[in-house]
Design a protein around this nucleic acid. Structure first.
Lengths: 351, 351
DNA sequence: TTGTACGCGTTATCAC
DNA sequence: GTGATAACGCGTACAA
């Protein structure tokens, strides 16, 4: 290894300080104000000078100092996002889209994760606020009051994403989780199903998962049906968990004819385990999920699911915070969902 | 909707400016220097004053301004990472780990994506540099010379991640892609395979994919074997692509007995398509992949693959840049890999 | 159209 | 142990 940076604590004496605005100005023979204008309001500078300054910038290799800029302008050009996890399906995809949307409008994305822990989320938000983010993208809507007041005191605009509630204080960008699951229930009831089980993500500190569960409950109630408490399961986001919970659900005294899964990996696990147990899907058991990742449609028995464009959630969230910051008109957005029926679901078996 | 922020361009007149260091100082009846010390070097301040200042901070609700801090200290406490994509398997997982490792040492993660485009990557790096990142985590090692000089001129330390090359100028943190694939080839040859096909990610601007392909080629050569050019395929990172390329590979005049896939999704696709085509795996065809995501072991026929701890890549990359920044001793790290043999591979069929 | 000069909120270097 | 004050690098009234 031959690093060109010293691997020692001390650096060499001949440290050339990074070029500054004044260096550019000197080089171009103009004032610092002119250089600043060339960068920030090119139209207000004569062509000749602009050209001269641009060249000077190249020559001295000037890179503007964001800290100094932020200090005077009170804007950092950064947006913070705090998500429960960064690698999980829909969040991961939304991050991709967020980053693109922000980059397109010359903002940069500061990322943090909360691991579904409200306290950690708040501490991350605090840290991002100190960093001077111009806006925040958060997930869900439930937040402690101290938290709310912290944000409003700092006047940092933020988005509640992956959820939709028209009456929320701050704009929501996401699907109506409850309505989406309700549609799925309607479909299953229409197919003749009457006995259900559900495996969902832990609803603690997860208002999206809770909304989905309640959506199922309310929709069933509307049909005069219900899932008995002992047929409602909660688990982690994993295939293995889905496998395990399928086994538990199918060991119930009264077997369900339809299994509703709260996310994609639980559904995949449930389906794979059903195949392994030689449970005939969908003749014997219908399995449905939430979130349409590529895998859902590619398995030997493609899975019926709720499709929500997570990329859209990310993109619109980003654009909406920027609109709030830049003083444009903004509003929450209900991201549409769609029930995608595939081979894993069908008519309920005859009793 | 009843936003508590004005949905208009102009804000109300009674704008209370955010509390600053001097407000805290006034409140506590001390100088700004003392407040600063309480925050940054608590030990050098008397207990009484420290307590008084802490209370004052609470009362006025002071949040330090990172821009001002950065301006004088020349450090922003941010690390930038530019990855080809943020949602793809191993990258997504590594981001999670990076974020954790950085947060643990009180740094924050600035994220950008390059979409496998060197020009875009460079522009993202430029943007992050302007934002004043203290260090960078990049992917791979191949970089244009202008690029290198840009970074060294700005004296921003960086890591080449997901790759390992001991002689690199800047430290690498990642697996030895070539060696990993070579091990896999050794295993397959040992199982009696002589006819191979490979489906890999596009190697353009992707030195990791290239290293894997070359690793396969060299290892085969070492055994006096080779993959003919028409049995080498490149495609995108998706299950569908894997399915398609399996069909192409199995339509070759001389059918391979082993199919080497360059990443996890291609392997999953290939396996699922093989199942659909009723190709007996592994009796008729062995399928192996790279990267061990949960799905690989959960499919009806679990897939033999190379396991690399991507989380480790993220964690160690983060810690190493921080070490470089903080003047500690640092070095590149070769992340270990492991061949995980599962049901998708076995002895070559008798001719 | 261009230049001067001050201020942004901290940190760090001095004296005290 | 504590306080005054000069940077830090840029944006921007305001003057020219």
């Amino acid at each position: 290894m031959k690093p060109d940076m010293s691997n020692q604590k001390t650096s060499n004496a001949t440290t050339v300080p990074r070029a500054g605005l004044r260096d550019v100005a000197k080089m171009a023979g103009v004032s610092t104000a002119t250089v600043s204008r060339v960068v920030n309001q090119p139209d207000t500078v004569s062509d000749t000078l602009r050209k001269r300054v641009m060249d000077a910038i190249q020559v001295v290799g000037w890179v503007p100092n964001a800290a100094a800029r932020a200090l005077t302008s009170n804007r950092t050009g950064t947006i913070g996002a705090v998500l429960p996890a960064l690698a999980l399906g829909d969040f991961a995809r939304s991050i991709d889209a967020m980053q693109d949307a922000l980059a397109a409008r010359n903002y940069v994305l500061l990322l943090a994760r909360s691991n579904y822990d409200p306290a950690l989320e708040f501490s991350q938000v605090t840290k991002l606020a100190e960093r001077g983010v111009d806006g925040l993208i958060l997930v869900g809507r439930d937040r402690a009051p101290e938290y709310q007041s912290f944000l409003s005191r700092l006047k940092i605009p933020y988005i509640n994403s992956f959820i939709f509630e028209p009456e929320a204080t701050m704009p929501c960008v996401g699907p109506d989780n409850a309505a989406a699951m309700a549609s799925m229930v309607d479909y299953l009831v229409e197919q003749g199903h009457r006995r259900f089980a559900m495996i969902a993500q832990t609803t603690t500190s997860n208002d999206r998962a809770l909304a989905r569960r309640n959506g199922v409950r309310d929709a069933l109630a509307h049909h005069g049906l219900a899932i008995p408490p002992h047929a409602m399961f909660e688990g982690k986001w994993s295939i293995e968990e889905g496998r395990m919970l399928l086994n538990v659900a199918m060991a119930l005294e009264v077997r369900p004819t339809a299994l509703i899964c709260g996310n994609s990996m639980l559904a995949v696990g449930a389906l794979l385990q059903a195949m392994e147990n030689e449970i005939r899907v969908p003749d014997e058991l219908s399995i449905v999920g939430y979130d349409d990742v590529e895998l859902m449609s590619e398995l030997p028995i493609p899975i019926t699911t709720v499709r929500v464009a997570s990329e859209e959630v990310g993109r619109v969230s980003a654009d909406t915070v920027l609109d709030m910051i830049e003083g444009k008109r903004w509003t929450g957005t209900r991201i549409p969902y769609e029930i995608v029926v595939r081979a894993s679901s069908g008519p309920a078996p005859a009793t």
